[in-house]
Amino acid sequence: MKRKNVCSWTLQLGSVEVSRRSPVASWLCAMLYCFGSYILADIMLGSSPVDYFQHNSHILLASAVWYLIFYCPLNLFYKCVSFLPIKLVLVALKEVVRTRKIAAGVHHAHHAYHHGFFIMVIVGYVKGSGVALMSNFEQLLRGVWRPETNEILNMSFPTKASLYGAILFTMQEAHWLPVSKSTLILIFTLFMATSKVVMTARHSHGSPFALIESWICHLLFSSPLAGGEEDHHHPPPAGAPSSPLKTKEDLSEGARKRKVKKAE
């Protein structure tokens, strides 16, 4: 869904400013958001990362949507696709495409590496969440460096679901899962589309996997339970120092006060 990917990119901090200051950088960032999964998968499988750009119609469609999003008079196009009923339809369609890409990535890797199950999982995962995995490189094009937003460190629901989906499709490809591919695609698509539509309608950024992941991580890795007493992510109490290290401004201020006291 080129339209939905470009719309998602407009929510990134500074994207509108970049579109005004440097249209070329803005267009490149939009193309990365549209085709990042194909680029990463091609690199991993030894193909040229520009292979997908031979599809002129896809590039022209994505470019047209990018132009309308940022330069349409009165922001009419953006307001239209941001209207909640239309947005929910686009979100659902995007998850349909995501499932198809995960299945295609696993199938492609299976042909190249018949017994490379980890490779199948990784390629399927990249095909489903390549947009998010490319976000740090896209930030560099916008002149922003925010390593704390690394998708591996802070996995969103679509990224986690892509990983779990890649595992399921790999198991099906290896005949470890007694279900046909078409049935698995249908079930996984319904789950993804329903989850994303509900989360978008409720403006929620949570994850349906949160409770299960919390218990599994607590059991296997001794991680604190979500919302438990051992959670170390609570903000520090009021008045507590944020860091034992003083900044240069603090040191210079202290030195200035000592000089004033000596002068007195």
Rank of each mutant, 00 (worst) to 15 (best):
R3N: 10
C7L: 10
G14V: 02
V16T: 11
S19R: 10
S19W: 01
R20C: 11
R21D: 12
M31F: 02
Y33W: 07
Y33R: 05
I39T: 10
L40G: 00
L40H: 00
A41G: 04
M44V: 15
L45V: 09
S48N: 15
V50S: 11
D51F: 09
L60F: 10
L60I: 11
A64V: 12
L74R: 15
L76H: 04
S82G: 04
F83Q: 07
P85N: 03
L88E: 03
L90P: 01
V96L: 13
R98F: 03
I102F: 04
A103S: 13
G105E: 00
G105V: 01
H111A: 08
G116Y: 02
F118G: 12
S135T: 08
N136V: 04
F137N: 04
L141C: 12
W145A: 10
N154R: 15
L163Q: 03
I167F: 08
L168P: 02
S182P: 02
I185H: 03
F188W: 15
L190H: 02
F191Y: 11
S195M: 12
V198Y: 14
M199T: 02
M199S: 13
A201P: 00
W215K: 14
P224Y: 04
G228M: 06
E230F: 12
H233S: 14
H234P: 02
H234A: 11
G239V: 11
S242W: 05
E253C: 07
A255N: 14
